[in-house]
Design a protein around this nucleic acid. Structure first.
Lengths: 177, 177
DNA sequence: TAGTGCATGTAATGCGTTACATGATTTC
DNA sequence: GAAATCATGTAACGCATTACATGCACTA
């Protein structure tokens, strides 16, 4: 896979033909939570993939508005399958709120607790976003649905963790006071 | 904060003076799971921070081997506190195994299940790494310890999630067979 | 007719990783 | 004596984000 956006493009096209714009829109309400992509990656990569025969583009304008819809070729499907079977579990996380918490010993107790409260609040918001996105069961392909449910479960777990720690820490400070 | 490595440097120095090399080593067995940093970021940033008066360097060679140990200035501590109190919960995730799972409808059932099994295995490995790192309680400052326990709890949650999904999916395919 | 959404694209910029270079010291 | 670790640093490269530009179509 040439770069980070390649598997997303091939993968989304395996679920149905799409334009670059639609790929971006789909990413923004699905994979972006664990795999983001921008126009600056998508459009050049679409041309490269077409040039290399992994996808095929077809002009499908809306009136005078140009539009190009891409679909997977057999070579593209093979490439996708090869990648899907690949190993390697690279999980990269960039969690600023966790970094703050890590250094919270520099803060007065109250402010440190506020950090956890802020984290809980952030995940609470994400949870609401996900619940809005949540499709009716059966709407999405099974594994798309599975990953959506992963998102819900993960976000719930995070909010719960924050709530538990807050409770525990408040009990401890109350005891030592 | 000028760039991504700045808060890590200020934060780690708030826990004690360190050289650039030691900062990197500490990052690699603590924050790297949610906030990585490389030499290419650390050394230039140390010079910048010293120039701006947020940290202070002192030569502390080991024999003929040069070494420079940095510590926080008051201005640096103020900057750190300001950042710690800042809002914003940017959680960026890059999880390739989850992306694979998302597109697993393109695979035969068996291979798709293997993906989950592979994910479980990866988190299992991470769990063992974390358990080796795990310090005796009381060794680390409270919030450093809290985040380490977050890592353990999170990794355990992920392995559990995988196991549950495997069980459920196996039961379903057995039923429909 | 003004604003929003559809649709494609690129240029600049900034950033981080990787790889390399150098040399001292400690350990086996 | 070799290998690993300590210690500092930089250059090149690739990459992704951001911002901008353009213009059509629909809707309020």
């Amino acid at each position: 896979m040439a770069n980070a956006v390649t598997p997303v493009i091939l993968g989304l096209l395996s679920l149905g033909s799409r334009s670059g714009y639609e790929i971006k829109a789909t990413v923004d309400r699905s994979t972006r939570f664990f795999w983001a992509a921008s126009y600056g990656q998508i459009y050049p990569e679409l041309r490269r993939l077409e040039r290399d025969g992994l996808i095929e583009g077809e002009d499908a304008p809306n009136g005078a508005r140009p539009r190009r819809v891409y679909s997977l070729t057999q070579a593209g499907r093979d490439e996708l399958l090869a990648w899907l079977r690949g190993q390697n579990v690279t999980v990269e996380l960039r969690d600023e709120s966790l970094l703050r918490l890590f250094f919270a010993d520099a803060l007065p107790d109250d402010d440190a607790l506020r950090l956890i409260e802020g984290r809980r609040h952030g995940f609470q918001g994400a949870l609401e976003t996900l619940r809005e996105i949540e499709a009716r069961p059966g709407e999405d392909p099974p594994f798309v649905d599975l990953v959506l449910r992963w998102g819900l479960a993960y976000t719930e777990w995070e909010t719960r963790w924050c709530a538990e720690q807050l409770e525990r820490l408040r009990a401890e400070t109350a005891q030592s006071a």
